[in-house]
């Protein structure tokens, strides 16, 4: 079940967090290298990009979610179908950090005991003058207590954005075979959640 054998694989990253923390901004900075200062509410968007890693075609799907609307069913579904999670908060908004905590609890609950890659991102790092969340506090909570990774980034100034995605992909297990990850806390079986073998139609009827 190694990646090389399949020749092609897919990974889905999802961005979750409170309204207006910069989820869409991070994604658009990464994909298009653009920045739009005006906030517009996102409902749900799926982006996709193909990478070639050592001859292996990898489709990276990035799901942008809504912080403004509350659709628990939709959120649940997006968590179920995703491989790695970016939990975004804004360094000038302590409440958004609280949202990250509850989102993490929800993810763990849905994913149960399975190993779940989570990266906590403190966005708007450029707004040093308005900062209300100290990075040391978050770092210790995330890395020590939660055993997840933590990064600060700025979509506006394009700081650390690529690193966020690198970390996500690394944790999502994809290139880890090529370069051993920092963390090797993995399950015995590599995950390939999104790959479903096509159902054999003759077997589809339970009773015949």
């Amino acid at each position: 079940m190694s990646l090389e054998v399949k020749g092609k694989t897919q990974v889905r990253l999802v961005f979750l967090g409170a309204a207006g923390v910069g989820k869409t901004a991070l994604i658009l900075r990464f994909l298009q290298d653009t920045f739009e200062p005006k906030h517009r509410r996102t409902v749900e968007e799926l982006h996709s990009k193909e990478y070639d890693i050592d001859g292996v075609k990898v489709t990276v799907e990035i799901l942008d979610t809504s912080g403004s609307y509350s659709f628990p069913a939709m959120r649940k579904l997006s968590i179920q179908n995703s491989d790695a999670f970016a939990l975004v908060y804004a360094v000038d908004d302590p409440e958004s950090l609280e949202a990250v905590k509850s989102l993490r609890d929800e993810i763990l609950e849905i994913k149960e005991d399975k190993y779940t890659p989570i990266v906590v991102v403190g966005n708007k790092a450029d707004r040093e003058e308005a900062r209300q969340v100290s990075s040391e506090d978050v770092l210790s909570t995330v890395e020590l207590d939660w055993n997840n990774s933590y990064l600060e980034a700025s979509a506006k100034e394009n700081a650390n954005v690529v690193e966020v995605f690198k970390e996500l992909l690394q944790q999502a297990n994809l290139p880890s075979r090529l370069s051993p990850a920092l963390r090797r806390r993995r399950e015995t079986f590599p995950k390939d959640t999104n790959f479903r073998p096509p159902m054999n139609k003759t077997n589809s009827c339970i009773l015949s």
Binding site: V43, E44, S48, E61, Y69
Partner: peptide, 16 residues
């Protein structure tokens, strides 16, 4: 109403 609109590569965007 909110609904999804898909692109040819099966990515989508949700509009209101």
């Amino acid at each position: 109403i909110l609904f999804k609109v898909y692109c040819s590569d099966h990515t989508y965007t949700t509009i209101r």
